[in-house]
Amino acid sequence: MKIALLSALNAERAKRAAAVLVTDLESGEQRVVKGGQLKKDPLSDALQEQLRLGKSGTVEDQGRRYFLTVQSPPVRILVTGAVHISQALAPMAKLLDFEVTIVDPRTAFASPERFPKVALHAVWPDAYLAQHPLDRYTALVALTHDPKIDDVALIAALEADCFYIGALGSKRTHAKRVERLQKAGFGEAQIARISAPIGLDIGAATPAEIALATLGQLVAALRKTQAVRAQPKVVAAR
């Protein structure tokens, strides 16, 4: 592979853009197809399908075999609430290779002493989101169960089609949240994208166990349902 191609691939990832490296397995010829050029490529359908699945793989076209190295942007997690659960979730997520950012305007919570080596922003979510918009490769974990803090982020996450959206809170808290989101104009299917009460049902009792249940659910959303999609619509499968 030409180093220039590898640089192009790495540059796309740095921009959080999807890209595919196409290798002709017979000739060894290679090209990088950026997200915006997908439709014009001769292997367009196959490229879009592999990207949708988020999986690398071999495809055949007119008797030639090509290997597609699919590169989806790295997964990020935005957490609202610098709470006890977040203190456990941040190091666990780091170990799983997810980039974590915590936002909480309450400076008593969002203190570096409580969150060593974590990207921490003691600002309101709307201020943070104006600078760092969400995308479909980002997960939102809302942990304050304070509507003043969580709702703005939840709405932004629904609009950005984040691959995972989880919100802490009892069934009653969530019922009230659903009412607010309905008033904000969200439909049933959209609101159903929010996992609440948050996390897999593993009987989690401690903050760390809730963090584990949440990350388990997040990974399932990422890997099991192929929710991370470069294309919202399914194209004709080959």
Partner: peptide, 8 residues
């Protein structure tokens, strides 16, 4: 496994 060299 496909093994290739990085070329300048």
């Amino acid at each position: 496994v496909y093994v290739e060299k990085l070329e300048p």
